[in-house]
Amino acid sequence: MKSFNYKKHNDYKWAMTVDLDRCDGCGACVVACQAENNIPSLGVEQTQEGRNMLWLRIERYIEGSYPDVKVRFLPMMCQHCDTAPCESVCPVYATYQNNEGLNVQVYNRCVGTRFCGNNCPYSVRYFNWYDPDFEGKEKNQLNPDVSLREKGIMEKCTFCMQRIRRGKDNAADEGREVHDGDIKPACVQTCPTGALEFGNINDHHSRVSKLAHSGRAISLFEEKGTHPSVKYLKGGTADVF
């Protein structure tokens, strides 16, 4: 099933693959995401409250018991579902599907009912419980391409929307389509093991398309029928640690 807008042909549909065999849980992507997207660090107290605003988080699952213990890592970010449950429940259209397969969050439109967060099975939507507080030098390293979010609104991974824009602009300046590898979200750029891939899944020659159509690709909570744009390449053969 394709969502309504996909009856039209679109040049781009952005997607990401996460190679679970390659991920070693180093957390570089998390830091990169935080720096790129002006995500405030909330400090000890708020983190203990469970309000750590990580657009991209690494979930750790521990299997077995000592001494035979395995740790599995699952990088979790907004899955940019084709039929996203979060979108339809928003009373003010603050989140909707754009025609490049992205699940867009319109910060200025959001009133903060937080219904979207309740309907997201991946729990990847975050709420600004307080105004973001960037102190001292943190202010100087804010990304000018990304807006700061006020208290009381929802936010989430955008697949680094600003980088997608820039990539498309550059391509348009040179009068060409976006090549595979032109656009790299912060996490993909930073990942030391190359576990993350990003690209246009409508381009059948792109790496992401090939990986997403390989036998290893799975979607999280596939039974929910959300049709995520993020595919996980299942592993299980290689034991980390």
Partner: peptide, 27 residues
């Protein structure tokens, strides 16, 4: 709601941006 001062976004008020609330939302 998180932004009380923006709660009128939920009312079906005609406006120049032609923005309407989402009647597909149970809210």
């Amino acid at each position: 709601v998180g932004r009380l001062w923006r709660v009128y976004y939920m009312f079906p008020l005609p406006n120049q941006r032609e923005l309407w609330p989402n009647f597909k939302s149970p809210l």
